[in-house]
Amino acid sequence: MTLRLPQGTYAPRREPLALPSGGQPPESRTVFAAAHVVADPYDTHGSQDAPPAVDWDATLAFRRHLWSHGLAVAEAMDTAQRGMGLDWPAAAELITRSAAEAKAVGGRIACGAGTDQLTAPASLPAVRDAYEEQLTHVEGSGARAVLMASRALVGAARGAEDYLATYGRVLAQASEPVILHWLGPMFDPALEGYWGSADLDVATETFLEVIAEHPDKVDGVKISLLDAEREVEVRRRLPKGVRCYTGDDFHYPELIAGDEQGFSDALLGVFDPLGPLAAHAVRSLDTGDAEGFRELLGPTVPLARELFRAPTRRYKTGVVLLAWLSGHQEHFTMLGGQQSARSLPQLARTYQLADGLGLFPDPELAEARMRALLVVHGVPQ
C-alpha cells in the first residue's frame, strides 16, 4: 500500500523503531520535554476568541507517557499553546493538575510562570505583580518555576535597567531557584528586543548580568534563539552551578553532546514527539557512548527543522499532528483551531519524516489516520 501525498506517492514504513518500553531518567543530563495540551474536540465554541477547552484526561495521559520514559515535563510553556490559545486561568489549572499528577507518579516537572493575565498596555509594577502571582501559583503546586519571557515587559520597559529591576524583584520572591527562559522572536514576534535591545550582543550582556546578580536564585537558563554559537558562549559564561538547558530545536544533538568545556541539558518542544527516542539516546551518554547518542538523535534533525520551520511559532501544529498519528489522542484538533496553522504539504512532509524514523508505535494506525486527513483535504487515495 502507498499513500498519495501532495509531493507524490509514498510507501509507509511497516515496523516502528525498536526502543525499550519505558526507562529511568538519564543521569548525565537533565532532560525536559515541553508538552502540548489536548483540546476537547467536543468544544462548541470553535473560536480563537473563546475560552480554551482542554481534554484533561488525554492531556495528563500524555504527560504520564513522557514520565514513563524517564523524561521530565516542562508544563504550561509555549508548546502548550501558552499565549496562542491557552490563557492564564486554563494554564493555572493545567499546572495544578499536572503537578499533582507528577507527585502521584514520581515524575519531575517544571512549570511556566509569566504575565499573560495582563492586558496591554501594562505598567512595570503590574508586570512584577503578575509575575509574582504566577510564581506563587507554580511554587504552591510543588513545581519548579520557569520564568517565561513577558510580552507585557517588552511594552513597559524602557531599557535594560527595567529588565534588571523587574527580574531582580521577582527572583527575590522565589523560594527555590528558577529556570530563566529567553524566548526569541522567531517563537513569538512580540518578544523582539527582549532584555532591552534588539542587538543580541547587548541583550546577552543584560541576560548574563541578571544571572550574575542572583546566581543562588537561578537553577538554569533555557535559551530558545536557534543560535548554537550564542548558546555555547552563554553556557561557558554561566556561574558555577547554573545549568544551560538548550531550547534550540535545530542544533540540540551537538549542544547536548557538548564539547571539552561542557554541555547543555535540555528543555525542548521537539522532545514532545521524540520522547522515547530522545530519552533512550540521552541514556547512551550515561555510559559514555557518544557515538550511539549521535546515531540515534542525529537523524531526527530534519524532522525537527520541518516542525520548526518559519513561521516557527506554528510548530505546535506539527507536534499535535504527530501525537494524533502516534495514537496519543483521538483527533487532530487544537485550541483556537490552530490545526489549520500549517499547510497540507507541510503536514504530509512531517508525517513522511516521522514515519521514516520509525516514530509511530503503530505504523498502520498512523497510515490510516494520515490517509483520512489527505482525503478530507481533497487528495484522493
Rank of each mutant, 00 (worst) to 15 (best):
L3V: 00
A11D: 11
A11M: 13
A33W: 05
A34C: 10
H36G: 08
V37C: 04
V38R: 00
G46N: 09
Q48P: 15
Q48A: 15
Q48S: 13
A61R: 14
R64Y: 10
R82F: 02
R82K: 09
G85V: 09
D87M: 09
A92N: 09
S98G: 07
A99E: 03
K103P: 03
I109T: 06
G112H: 13
T115F: 10
Q117K: 14
L118V: 02
A120R: 13
S123E: 11
Q134L: 01
H137V: 14
V138I: 06
G140C: 10
A145Q: 12
A145C: 15
A149L: 09
L153N: 01
V154K: 07
V154I: 14
A156W: 04
V178R: 04
V178S: 13
I179H: 09
I179R: 13
L180Y: 06
H181P: 14
A190C: 08
L191E: 03
Y194L: 15
Y194W: 14
S197R: 03
D201I: 13
V202G: 08
A203E: 09
T206Y: 07
T206S: 00
L208A: 09
I211K: 07
H214S: 06
P215V: 09
D216T: 14
K217D: 10
G220E: 12
D227Q: 08
R230C: 08
G241I: 06
V242I: 03
R243P: 07
C244A: 14
D248P: 03
D249E: 08
F250K: 15
H251E: 04
H251P: 06
E254D: 14
E260C: 04
Q261L: 15
S264F: 11
D265G: 06
G269L: 02
V270Y: 15
H280M: 11
H280V: 04
S284T: 14
G288T: 02
R294D: 07
T317A: 05
V320E: 02
L322G: 06
L322S: 01
S326G: 03
G327C: 02
H328G: 11
M334Y: 02
A341Q: 14
A348K: 14
A348G: 00
R349Y: 12
A354P: 08
L359M: 02
M370C: 10
R371W: 03
A372G: 09
P380S: 03
